[in-house]
Amino acid sequence: MSHTFGTTFNLGTTLVAYNISDVAGNMATCTFNVIVQAAGDTTPPTITFCPSDVTVEVKSGITSAVATWIEPTATDNVTLVNLSTVMSHTSGTTFNLGTTPVVYNISDAAGNMATCTFNVIVTAAGDTTPPTIIFCPSDVTVEVKSGITSAVETWIEPTATDNVTLVNLTTVMSHTSGTTFNLGTTLVVYNISDAAGNMATCTFNVIVQEICLQHTEQSSTHATATSDKAVDGNTNGNYNAGSCAHTRCAI
């Protein structure tokens, strides 16, 4: 065994292993953790160093690069505690063109966690050409019945290409397809950027409007003129009260 019953363990998590063998040398293993934690510890570790964004520039045509950084560090309010670090990427990893978030989660023995995040940005040197929008939706109109004040609208997402092959384009939009829009006109904006920060923009409107119907009512009221000229200007002796147009929204 790695430890015996009654051993003193420090704060944190320690793996205990028992290897049990028979006379023929066949072995079975039992493993478990001994976890020593401070009672009532609800304070996460304090990040004492977290790297800033890391930018690596490569020549045109190169699609990836190795990025390195100094590892984040942290302290805890409980002395001698073993801090546990789980990261999305390690220093020395190869990153593709574009922006990649790197996350370090640092936990103490009580499970309290602090997080350090930064970006690794791989850019193509000399790239000043923005992406090319190859599809941008036209204005989208949706009609609703009277009394309805909003509607859900969907559309095909804009698409773009870039002059640098295999580049990771980043899209930031004001609204996503499937959003609920209020009555009226709302501007939707998509900003699409390449790894060098060059940006192209796609804009269109979402228009939510009530369905309105128009009908005309003809008056049935007539009068007989008392003079040679009718009150409506006609000489046929008939009075035409005219028509009245009404516009209303459908119910």
Results as ranks from 00 to 15, higher is better:
N119M: 05
V120Q: 04
C30W: 03
V144S: 02
A67G: 05
T129A: 12
F204I: 05
T186P: 00
T132I: 13
D76N: 03
M173C: 08
T128C: 10
A125W: 00
N19G: 12
S220C: 10
T7I: 09
T4Q: 15
T129V: 11
T43L: 08
A39I: 11
T8A: 13
I106L: 02
G12C: 01
N105R: 10
N198S: 10
D41W: 03
F9C: 11
I35D: 09
A110S: 15
V189T: 15
T13M: 07
V36G: 03
L169N: 04
T141L: 09
V56D: 08
C136V: 05
T55C: 07
L213W: 11
F135S: 14
F181R: 03
L15H: 08
Q214K: 14
N10G: 15
P72D: 01
A65L: 07
S146M: 09
A200M: 07
I148H: 04
W69P: 01
I211C: 11
T180M: 05
N205A: 08
M113Y: 08
T117R: 12
F204K: 06
S243I: 00
D127A: 09
N77S: 15
C50E: 03
C30L: 15
V36Q: 02
G6T: 12
G98D: 03
V16R: 02
T7S: 15
T55Y: 05
H246Q: 07
W69Y: 09
E143G: 10
N236Y: 13
A38V: 04
H3A: 09
D76V: 02
T43E: 06
T117D: 05
S88E: 06
G61S: 11
A151V: 11
P51H: 06
G197S: 09
Q37C: 05
A65S: 13
L83G: 00
V36E: 01
T226E: 08
I62Y: 01
I251P: 01
H222S: 13
G237I: 12
L187P: 01
V172Q: 05
T13Q: 12
S243V: 11
G98V: 05
V152C: 09
T123H: 04
N240T: 01
H175D: 11
G126R: 14
I148C: 02
G237T: 10
S177K: 08
P44L: 00
A28M: 10
G178C: 06
G92K: 07
A200V: 10
